[in-house]
Design a protein around this nucleic acid. Sequence first.
RNA 1: CGGGGUGUAGCUCAGGUGGAAGAGCGUUGGCUUUGGGAGCCAAAGGUCGCAGGUUCAAGUCCUGCCACCCCGACCA
Length: 570
Amino acid sequence: MRWSRYFWYTSKEDPADTEAPSHKLLIKGGFIKQVSAGVYEFTPPGVRVLRKIENVVRKEMDRSGAQEVLLTVLNPAELWKETGRWELYGRELFTLKDRNGRDYCLGPTHEEEITDLVRSFVNSYRQLPLILYQIQTKFRDEKRPRFGLIRGREFIMKDAYSFDADEFSAMMSYETMKFAYDRVFKKLRLKTLMVEASVGAIGGISSHEFVVLTDYGEARVAYCESCGYAANAEVVKLSKPQEEKEEERPLEQVETPSTDTIEKLSNFLGVPPRKILKAVLYIVDGLTPVMFIIRGDRNVDENKVSMVLGTENFRLAEDQELWELLRTKKGFIGPFNLNSSIKVYWDNSTYGVKNAVIAFNKPDYHYVNANPGRDFQYGEFVDVCQVEEGDPCPKCGASLRVSRGLEVGHIFLLGTRYSEPMRAYYKDPQGQEKPIIMGCYGIGISRCISAIVEQHNDERGIKWPTSVAPFELDLICVNPTDPQQKEVAEHLYLLSEEMGIETIYDDRDESPGFKFADADLCGFPYRIIVGKKVKEGKVEVQCRQTGEKWDVGIQEAIREVKKRIEEDKK
RNA sequence: CGGGGUGUAGCUCAGGUGGAAGAGCGUUGGCUUUGGGAGCCAAAGGUCGCAGGUUCAAGUCCUGCCACCCCGACCA
């Protein structure tokens, strides 16, 4: 491809309104252009990267026996009503009506549709197992799109669905996908961590996420460097700590004016936050108050709360509700003198404290030196504590590391969540009707572009792994007005095409620095520079990943680059 | 959905206290230049996010709305 004719425009200036390196570089490098919040266009080079990723995924899916389908973007509401998700999915669902007033949505995921497809053809155990997949644009009306392709409202996803006759077979399908995912991410040069994930309120059986560690992810991931345990922070179990050994001091009521945060209270009393018992009041389903007591230096993990409550429909109580329910205000909530209708849960972290500070619903007062058994009674213990760096690994007890991560893949053994309500049944060898066991497996294709850039960039720009680079080779003619340079460059261009190298030939009439800067920014794995040295029969080869550069004879240049490209792609 | 911020040329931004719409980059034409985002000359380019209001006069002040970005809660 001759750059002078190619629809590819980079920017010298950093784009405004971008934060994440991948977002910045993809826009600056002219791979994508924003159309509205979370909606992006792909330019020709952007599409080339996208297609390469798709093809890596496609190849590994096909290799593991999955078969490609193409479902629809426009989904009729009826299917979604069959599983109840028309209501459950909530505001994330992009919905619309046709001219006759019939309801549709733009598919955010395709369990309903694939189940419908399968139930209409599969009716015998002989037709199972089966794995179908598609690569399709999805739509989710996200509350907050973020970081370019990392979280869009329109995005491209590979979603696969497995159909099995029994749970054992379903586990096999699950494992097959797990291995396929490992291969995919290896080929994309994405360092991922496979973490245990929440099976969520829909009650799946098993679930793992493939996570890229980066500050611009939205998942919190905990992992153990000593035993290899890794999990989404929300599923890491934290148990009761050792009982503290400390002499019990006499209980006091202390006036603690306007200490409405743990920090203020801790400073005011000169007591470390871990000795303070914090109470948090939630309102469930808009009416039922539920109180959680947790150690002051810890935070409530609302994902864990939803597990305890069995619903996601809860929120923190507002100031007015605190007054109506407890006659107190924020900072002075405690488990004392409560109306019996208020359920109180004690987080495991509160176990065994001695001489604690705790509020008792009297504004501007706290108890100091409160001790369990003597001054208050524990109730039901739960685990709603957000995991922090250094917490004990639930497998081996070593210190956990906690880090932000970007979820690029998710595998989920669904069971019969969809097949049951949609009556996707098959007849077993005994002639019994049974629901198909399903699994679903996603890879965020467009998100992977960002993830790769997050892991492969430097201050000059992107460093694409060869397997996904828009072009493998950037051929730069330093001075196209020099007939000798021009001739050599044209020759090498033709030769590279002949050798099957994907080459962009930078024949633009621009200054050398301009072309070099673009080469760095756009991240081609290899660069051949045709410049002054052609007089000595040499050109320069550069490798973007390693930064090495060396001169080679004009005749050897293409062959040498070809060899390296082949190496990279293994 | 809560909190914060931004909106002026294609892009990045400047425009105290109201008084003729600006710069750099990019674009177009010309000349020069060619190993790290070149130089000189000339030119084109604007619904100052939108709608109201105050005022002799609004990019600037007031009200409402919209869009986008960031932080939190949620998804690949």
